[in-house]
Amino acid sequence: MKTWSFRRRAVTAVTAVFLLGMGGCIAGIADRPEAIDRTRIAGTWTGDDGARVELHTNGRFEMSNIPRSAVVFSFGDPPPGDGKLSGSGTWQPGHAGDTVDRILLYVEPGGSFADVQVEALGVAESGEEPVLYFSTSPDEWYGLEIRKTPM
């Protein structure tokens, strides 16, 4: 049990450093990264074909109907095929501060995921109708868009 806990922490730390570093590359590509007020992150975000991410105020999240192509598998093998993914775990802003340009999703084993995964949501638009996107890879930095569902 202690080995799993140590492995998970090590994998999470390495991935977070990679994703934060990749954020600098993304900023260079996009010229000016968008940022969202951290108080606006929690809520339900939806995309095409029923994609859904619920970011709860307690730091938990659930996602469903996410296209396989929107998720980069950092650890372990991806599920076979091109279907839809579901999973849950915890989330946190990519850095401290009043505004945030990315949100880290720590996906726990279960649903479509056999191993711990770390995903990043970038901020595409921060205005009245904010838009987040899944960071797909350094080669295709802008992926599936999800929009915040009005309350």
Rank of each mutant, 00 (worst) to 15 (best):
A114V: 07
Q92N: 09
G81S: 04
D115V: 12
G97I: 09
G83V: 04
G111P: 08
S74I: 13
G94Q: 07
W91N: 06
R68C: 05
D77R: 15
V107I: 15
K84D: 06
L105D: 02
G83E: 01
V100R: 09
G87F: 09
R102I: 01
S126V: 00
G89T: 13
D98E: 12
A96L: 13
A96R: 03
F113L: 13
A120Y: 12
E119H: 07
S112P: 11
G89C: 12
G97L: 01
F73K: 08
V71I: 15
D98W: 08
K84H: 06
A70T: 13
S86H: 03
Q117H: 02
V100P: 07
L105W: 02
V118W: 09
Y106S: 02
S69Q: 03
H95Q: 11
A114R: 15
E108A: 15
P79L: 05
T90H: 07
Q92H: 15
S88Q: 15
P130F: 08
A120W: 04
G110W: 08
I103G: 02
E125I: 01
F113A: 01
W91Y: 06
D98I: 07
G89W: 15
F73D: 01
A120R: 13
R68W: 02
E128H: 00
P80A: 00
G122E: 14
G81W: 01
S112T: 10
F73S: 02
G89F: 08
G87H: 08
V72S: 02
S74K: 08
D115K: 13
G94P: 11
D115R: 14
G110C: 10
G87V: 07
